Simulated assay, not measured.
Amino acid sequence: MVSMEIRDLEAFLAVMSTGSITGAARLLDRSQSQVTRLIQDLETTLGFALFERNGPKIAPTEKGIAFHDDAERFVSGIGHLRDRAKAIAGREPEPIEIAATPAFASGIIPLALAQLPEDCLPRTINLRSMPAEAAVQSVLARTADFCVTSLPADQPGLEVQGFFEGPCVAALAPHDPLAARDVVSLADLAGRTLVTMANPFRLRHRVDQALEAAKVRPDRVIATNAAMNAVQIASTGLGVAIIEPATAYGMQAPSVAIRPLDVDIPFLWAIFSAGARPLSTGAHELIQRIMQIATERMPRLTVHDARRIARIADAAFARPNHPDTAPENEGRITEVPENEN
């Protein structure tokens, strides 16, 4: 079994963050030779090189890059464990660790945190924005108390705290002629630039299905990895974005107009915790506030029975589009699916 020292992992993460041994040494308050030795010890333990060295320059190897996320989660988990131990010893509210997709981490969750009663607020709250898949894994790995994420998501080992569905909306510049309408029709997007998500296995495939059913072909498609990017692009007037309601109503950016669509493009999301792991009072209260704010801010939000999550999600994702079958009119794409909402 591989045995790794925490200080070795911390040295590795410091070098990855700063891009140099010198920077890592300053960050860790160690000498450069000490940091070099820690990295070498870790490489010996792992059995592969983490960095390529060319004189004073250092760059991560492919294996080093692949190892980085797991190392970061592990070290973060150790820090979280230390915080919990301190809270238990001092009889303070336990730290809250939240993993969420960008759509929720940037909007609804901060609003919910602001409403937490003082006696539920611990000294440490960690809110990490990450891809949906990583958020679920954080809960399963016990480095997060709960996650707020879009579906689909693996169910084994997860306890559903809440399961919701809301319709997607259009985001467009206030001066766009369509902003004068109460409802934007998909037919109005024909010949326009459409801004949408990049990942073909999540929200994107439902948008493509709706366009296909309506026989609508945009002139150009700009695909991005986060809804906030789509909102920013739409605010310039370059195109019309189809986004999920969490970003649309959680952020409420004044530079864009949000309008309902004439067709239902469902956005499914849920709050998960680890099965058989009790939530702290603060975490439980925060989940209740998230659900309350989502209900207040998202029009036509449906609260589903958690027991039906597998059936409803399977039905919604029954026909995912393969990248090879994307619409012929698809144009320039910026795809970074690891941060997809």
Rank of each mutant, 00 (worst) to 15 (best):
M4L: 15
M4P: 05
I6R: 14
R7H: 13
A11R: 06
I21W: 06
T22P: 01
G23V: 00
A25D: 01
L27M: 10
L27Y: 00
D29K: 08
R30V: 10
S31E: 06
Q32P: 06
V35M: 04
L42E: 06
E43D: 04
L50V: 07
R53Q: 07
I58G: 09
I58Q: 07
P60S: 05
G64E: 00
F67M: 10
H68F: 15
D70Y: 14
A71E: 03
A71C: 13
E72T: 05
F74P: 03
G79A: 01
L81N: 10
R82N: 11
D83F: 02
K86R: 08
I88T: 12
R91E: 10
P95F: 03
A100D: 08
T101N: 15
P102I: 10
P110M: 07
P110Q: 03
L111R: 15
Q115S: 11
L116M: 14
P117D: 09
E118R: 12
E118P: 00
D119H: 14
D119V: 11
D119Y: 08
C120K: 11
L127T: 02
P131I: 11
A132P: 06
A134Y: 03
S138E: 01
L140C: 05
R142D: 06
C147N: 04
V148K: 01
T149V: 12
S150L: 11
P152N: 02
E159V: 14
V160T: 11
V160H: 02
Q161T: 05
F163R: 01
F163C: 08
E165C: 06
E165I: 06
C168V: 13
A171Y: 00
A173W: 06
H175V: 12
P177K: 03
A180T: 10
A187Y: 07
D188T: 05
L189T: 02
A190D: 11
G191D: 08
G191H: 08
V195S: 02
A198Y: 08
R206M: 13
E212F: 11
K215R: 15
K215Y: 07
V216T: 07
V216I: 05
D219N: 12
R220G: 05
T224C: 13
A226I: 14
A227V: 13
A230W: 05
Q232T: 10
G237D: 03
G237E: 00
L238G: 09
A246N: 06
T247R: 07
T247H: 09
A248S: 05
Y249T: 03
Y249D: 03
G250N: 04
M251H: 09
Q252N: 12
Q252I: 06
A253N: 11
S255Q: 10
S255G: 11
S255A: 14
I258E: 03
D264H: 12
P266D: 06
F267V: 13
W269G: 08
A270T: 13
F272A: 03
G275I: 14
P278T: 06
T281E: 14
T281C: 10
G282K: 00
I287A: 08
A294G: 08
E296M: 04
R297D: 05
R300W: 13
A306Q: 11
A310C: 10
A313I: 14
D314T: 09
F317S: 04
F317N: 06
N321M: 13
P323Y: 03
P327H: 04
N329D: 12
T334D: 12
